[in-house]
Design a protein around this nucleic acid. Structure first.
Length: 602
DNA sequence: GTAGGGTTAG
């Protein structure tokens, strides 16, 4: 016989409430929800329907509803309990949803395939999928039949846990044994998985295949591929696909347009932004919060914080109030232009507008301070975080550690890393990169090499950036042979050098007078399909000057200009330095080169 | 009543 407070509720209260009772400051004030003995069944049922769409405001409400439901005799239909679980999923309380599902079973509350599917969905959001598959076994053992939703959920779960091969295997098995008829969600899920693992061409093939098999793709199917094409900088292809959608009578929605807008902005296709926004207007698709946030971000990344603020003004006028992401983006914009004081003002503005800063907000500002070498201000913010109920994360600590290393304050690094571990933050690959880089930059080369070996043993050194950092450290500390040794082993380790890796090694060769080797590596880089960037050109040009290869410098500079790259400050100042101070000491070749170069630059 | 797509930071 269920009590007024079920054992499950007690467990949940004691275990989860400390983290979930804080009211959400973003939500409008609402009358407190307390289902009382006078709450009628129809009221409760209506509330359940509503909450299954929007989620609960807090866990406490959810548990009160559950207790109330248990008191009703005869038991409410299964659909109502399913709505309760769905509401928990909407609140992102996945582990609570699973506990509650188990409670259903213990209390012999009837469940159906939808209940199981919702439980599986919750499980897929947690760290392990084992329970999801045991639920699948449970469905079959209990005599139910898993449906297409069950399998779609599991496929998505496998994909989001980085297990694409198992997802593919499951999909193929389902087809072969005719367990289910895949639908548009099945195909869209797999297409998105392919897109997110850089297999866009396979995704396009699957798109054609599903159509051939008579399954009509929808806007979501196309949006996944459009996003992938945009991220690969194939924006024109993405635009073509939108035309295809229109021809096929699949109208793009606001997410499709936002995806494209993001693609245009990241590819600096500003001239195409206005027309896209007009098209949205013509299609009667008003911009949403995401749309505005993309625009704010685009302006900020270009240093146009005034335009970004104008967009925010428009948002407010159009009743699309800015959220924490909007303000964080603006703060980042101010930090990018070195205006940390303005960024701090934004932090206060958001508080005044009733939007609570989150961990990101602090991380952005801390990063801004670290870049300006204002480490004490960064550390003050770190101390302010717990006061506001925000827990610093691994990124907060890594950012400050990076800043401390840049300032040469390696003694403070030690303490901060200890604090980070003590507070339960696990270092990630970025923390490792920062530590390795910091050791190299602070001339702890032997320690850096030992740290690298330790990472190798733990299996986390398999990362091109880690190798590049070590190669750079070795080169800068005049250990070219060791650097070269590691560089030569990259391919056999299955690592592909990137622009930075090549450029670092080229710099190493130039610095040691091995200009021929640098040139060979540059051509190797080009043949491998890795295009030199502005830094590569500036590096090898400085190398050619350092090695007195003026004629080659001329060719390289012309090459660089043909690619629309410019000489940077250090290349330019190097040329200026070359100008002999005394007329009599002039070397005609040097002088000719310098004159030519300055003509090019000025 | 359950499943699939888009925005911020080291």
């Amino acid at each position: 016989m269920p009590q007024s407070v079920s054992p499950c509720s007690l467990l949940l209260h004691s275990h989860f409430l400390p983290f979930s009772t804080k009211p959400n400051p973003n939500s409008q004030p609402k009358p407190p929800f307390i289902p009382s003995p006078s709450t009628t069944h129809p009221e409760l049922q209506q509330l359940l329907y509503h909450k299954s769409k929007v989620g609960f405001d807090n866990l406490h409400d959810a548990l009160l509803v559950f207790d109330k439901m248990l008191q009703i005799k005869p038991l409410l239909p299964v659909i109502k309990f399913n709505q309760l679980l769905t509401a928990l999923v909407r609140t992102k309380e996945y582990s609570v949803a699973i506990s509650m599902f188990r409670e259903f079973r213990l209390l012999s509350i009837p469940v159906d395939i939808v209940t199981f599917n919702t439980a599986i969905h919750s499980t897929c959001h947690l760290s392990t999928l084992d329970y999801a598959f045991s639920l699948l076994a449970g469905i079959i053992k209990s005599g139910w039949v898993p449906d297409v939703v069950t399998y779609n959920t599991l496929i998505k779960g496998l994909l989001s846990h980085d297990r694409p091969l198992e997802a593919e295997h499951l999909f193929k098995k389902l087809i072969i044994y005719k367990e289910i008829q895949p639908n548009v969600v099945t195909y869209s899920t797999i297409i998105d998985g392919l897109c997110k693992t850089s297999n866009t061409s396979m995704a396009l093939k699957l798109l054609r295949k599903m159509e051939k098999l008579g399954c009509k793709p929808d806007a979501i199917t196309y949006t996944s591929i459009i996003d992938s094409l945009c991220k690969e900088r194939r924006v024109d292809h993405a635009l073509d696909l939108v035309s295809v959608m229109s021809v096929k009578g699949i109208p793009p929605n606001v997410i499709t347009y936002n995806t494209l807008l993001q693609g245009l902005c990241s590819s600096s296709r500003w001239e195409d932004v206005e027309p896209l926004l007009s098209e949205m207007g013509a299609q009667k698709i008003p911009p949403d919060l995401h749309t505005y946030n993309i625009l704010v971000d685009a302006h900020c990344k270009e240093g146009r914080t005034i335009d970004a603020q104008d967009v925010i003004e428009i948002m407010i006028k159009k009743s699309v109030p800015p959220d924490v992401i909007t303000y964080n983006t603006l703060m980042d914009g101010f930090c990018l232009t070195g205006k940390t004081d303005r960024a701090l003002e934004v932090l206060n503005t958001m508080r005044n507008n009733g939007i609570a800063p989150n961990c990101y907000s602090f991380n952005i500002l801390i990063n801004g301070y670290c870049k300006r070498q204002e480490l004490d201000k960064a550390i003050n913010l770190l101390r302010q975080m717990p006061v506001e109920g925000i827990k610093a994360d691994v990124q907060t600590y890594s950012t400050i550690v990076h800043g401390l290393f840049q300032m040469g304050r390696h003694n403070d690094v030690h303490n901060l890393l200890h604090e980070m571990l003590k507070k339960g933050n696990k270092p990630d690959i970025v923390t490792c990169r920062i530590l390795l880089d910091g050791l190299c930059k602070n001339r702890y080369m032997d320690e850096a090499i030992s740290f690298f070996r330790m990472m190798e043993c733990k299996g986390i050194a398999h990362d091109i950036q880690i190798h590049t950092i070590l190669i750079d450290g070795l080169c800068k500390n005049r250990k070219l042979d060791e650097a070269r040794n590691i560089f030569d082993k990259l391919a056999s380790r299955g690592l592909q050098p990137n622009v930075k890796t090549y450029t670092t090694m080229i710099q190493g060769f130039c610095q040691e007078g091995l200009f021929e080797e640098a040139k060979i590596l540059l051509s190797e880089m080009e043949t491998s399909g890795c295009l030199p960037n502005d830094v590569t050109y500036n590096t090898i040009i400085r190398g050619s000057l350092l090695n007195k290869r003026y004629e080659e410098a001329v060719v390289l500079i012309e090459n660089m200009r043909a690619h629309n790259y410019k000489a940077d400050a250090s290349t330019t100042s190097m040329v200026v330095e070359l100008f002999p101070k005394e007329q009599e000491e002039q070397d005609p070749a040097v002088l000719a080169f310098c004159k030519w170069f300055l003509q090019q630059v000025l």
